[in-house]
Design a protein around this nucleic acid. Structure first.
Lengths: 213, 213
DNA sequence: AACGATCTGGACTGTTCAGTAAAGAACCCT
DNA sequence: AGGGTTCTTTACTGAACAGTCCAGATCGTT
């Protein structure tokens, strides 16, 4: 038994992830990572391998956490499914807006940057997309059971629509859309989800959002 | 009067744009650009300035064309406004899917990559966003005049929603969503736009899309 | 307390990068 | 047809890059 590592793997990967997220894959140098983590290049290579392996480790760690937190945020009783959906979207906007540098999430950024170029990263991102969509579809099914959503609607298509909205919003925050506009878009998306047919008259333009902030 | 340039500026900028779009700003080298355009580094520097200026020129040229083609595609009689809207979204998907490398559009890519880092590029991208949104809002107002859309709805918010969808779809093509899924999402977005209140009963989940492919 | 295995960090290497400069080729005008 | 101006290409430069290596520090074990 020799000397144990003097760093926490999760903490290091979080710092690495942030660097990559800030400057992109090509724009991040090992010196940047070394400065951000406080580890020398030798330590980084010994612990994680080369730059690409280090990136994949950070991406994997990020996706794991993201998938778990998405599932947790969208899990719950059928009665509040629509509220969870709205809170999930608003929260993701707020998290990015409150970020000191308003960086887009790892998934939004690297889906665009690495598609068709880094197969391993793309595969991991695809898995993350499937997980996010599945969590959203589960929440939509709960809403259907509660009578908030048309039971004839296809949950996976609507979940894909929500991920599309999520990614689109995440990328557009970068050019300076403000919170009020984004919240209005989120409410317009949710207002457009198909309501169940029945006695309640649908008046999309004037209806109340599912919950207020 | 000396020797005139032996290249067409638009053609060169189109090749430059494609290189940047493929590999990103940091990932594109002047050698790549030199090979793609057939021009030496010296000619490029003399004609456009340094790498950043060259990028801005290519971005500006791309945005100019994009803004013009968006405006043209969405202009037309009120009666077919909804059809133009759908055709516009479907066309943009098809253009990207038929691209030999399925590259995301310039705007989608660099909005994410350069936000908070390149102010000049971000300003140009913001201008492009505003133009795209304005063109969509104009088309939505036409749909309102034709009675296809709730006159109480706010066209700019809905136009923002459509840009969000546009950008989200563009980025998600990269991880392998197929055309059928994307068309279903587009139809779900359009089906969710608020219909005018009135005798016609709204049954979102089962209604027909505005036109079939 | 001393040993040995492991971690650590800075120096080193070959490569590639953006940008420059100068020599040579091509073209318009007179 | 020739002169002058502009374009084009090649070779060059200093900096920055990813990745390697090794001497020294650190800690669990015996």
């Amino acid at each position: 038994m020799g000397r144990p590592p003097g760093f926490d793997r999760r903490e290091v990967l979080a710092a690495v992830e942030r660097e990559f997220r800030k400057s992109g894959y090509d724009g991040t140098t090992l010196d940047d990572i070394s400065a951000a983590t406080g580890l020398g290049r030798g330590s980084l290579y010994a612990a994680f391998g080369d730059k690409h392996a280090l990136f994949l480790a950070a991406l994997g760690d990020y996706c794991d956490q993201d998938e778990a937190s998405d599932a947790a945020a969208l899990e719950g009783p059928d009665e509040t499914a629509m509220e969870r959906l709205r809170a999930y979207l608003i929260d993701s906007v707020d998290r990015q807006l409150n970020d000191p540098e308003q960086l887009a999430c790892m998934a939004s950024r690297f889906t665009v940057e690495l598609a068709g170029r880094d197969q391993e990263a793309t595969a991991r991102l695809r898995h993350g997309f499937d997980a996010q969509r599945a969590a959203l579809a589960g929440c939509l099914r709960a809403a259907q059971r509660n009578g908030d959503l048309d039971p004839a609607a296809e949950p996976v298509t609507l979940a894909t629509l929500l991920v599309v909205g999520f990614r689109g919003i995440s990328s557009l925050i970068g050019i300076g859309l403000d919170r009020a506009e984004l919240v209005a878009v989120i409410d317009a998306i949710l207002a457009g989800l198909p309501r169940p047919p029945g006695p309640r008259v649908h008046q999309a333009a004037t209806q109340e959002p599912y919950s207020q902030v």
